[in-house]
């Protein structure tokens, strides 16, 4: 039952100071103002990326920056053990991998499925982007019961 001597005195020096917390909070406020401001401006597109996409990339980029500040500093992950860091990394990277399924939705051809109103109609959008080439879908047939 011999206990190992204190091997971890360093851990106690790793607490984040209130000054760092406050600076993080201020940074979050600035990013918050930036994202609201950016949403009122129509950013220009470039190359093959549309202006709308640029706006979306900026909004999500700022959200990711804010989330990183919260994860690394508020949640103190930068001072956590490697095992904890691995859990964080695995969790968020699996989340992004899930979006690969959009490749299926983006490339699958239109497959009509019977809806509640017995009109040939996609129960789910099986296509992304324009629907001009699809048969004209009557209103109120997106798997919604007809109104009385």
């Amino acid at each position: 039952m011999a206990k190992t001597p204190v091997q971890s005195a360093h851990a106690h020096g790793e607490h984040t100071s209130p000054v760092t917390y406050f600076a993080t909070f201020l940074a979050l406020c600035v990013l918050m103002a930036l994202t609201v401001g950016a949403s009122f401006i129509q950013l220009p597109g470039f190359w093959f990326i549309s202006g709308t996409a640029v706006n979306n990339i900026v909004a999500i980029g700022i959200a990711i920056a804010k989330a990183l500040l919260v994860i690394l500093i508020f949640m103190n992950v930068r001072h956590s053990s490697n095992l904890a860091k691995l859990y964080v990394l695995a969790g968020f990277s699996t989340f992004t991998l899930m979006f690969i399924i959009l490749a299926d939705y983006g490339t699958r051809r239109y497959e009509p499925a019977p809806s509640w109103s017995n009109v040939a109609d996609p129960a789910l959008p099986r296509t992304i982007g324009t629907t001009d080439h699809l048969p004209n879908v009557p209103i109120n047939s997106l798997n919604v019961r007809p109104r009385q």
Binding site: T35, L43, T52, I60, A67, V70
Partner: peptide, 15 residues
């Protein structure tokens, strides 16, 4: 919420 906020409230006008 950091992600919900821009996704629901700050959608850019399609342009």
């Amino acid at each position: 919420w950091i992600f919900l906020f821009p996704l629901f409230y700050l959608m850019p006008k399609p342009h």
